[in-house]
């Protein structure tokens, strides 16, 4: 099980939860299960989401594995210059 923290903007779309516990081995699995549980997350998950696992931010590599007890954060994707 991993505990996921949602950024503030996502919480209204996930029954105002800040932390969600979910069984997932990869980012892909995590996002699809979250979306299943909270369908309103579909919109932000299309283009806006990045996932921090133990401090490293992943924007595109959804095959990235999530270690047991990892700290997982959903973050908004940041623009660059």
């Amino acid at each position: 099980m991993v505990q996921v923290t949602l950024w503030a903007g996502l919480r209204p779309l996930a029954e105002d939860q800040e932390h969600v516990t979910i069984e997932a081995a990869t980012i892909r699995e995590l996002l699809s299960k979250l979306q299943l549980r909270y369908p309103a997350l579909e919109q932000p998950f299309r283009n806006d989401v990045a996932v921090a696992i133990n401090g490293t931010i992943y924007r595109d590599d959804w095959s990235q594995g999530i270690p047991e007890d990892a700290e997982v954060f959903l973050m908004r994707r940041i623009p660059g210059g």
């Binding site: 950024w7 401090g55 931010i57 954060f73």
Partner: peptide, 9 residues
């Protein structure tokens, strides 16, 4: 713990 959320490596 960073001010934007995750813990730093």
């Amino acid at each position: 713990r960073s001010s934007y959320g995750p813990v730093y490596g």
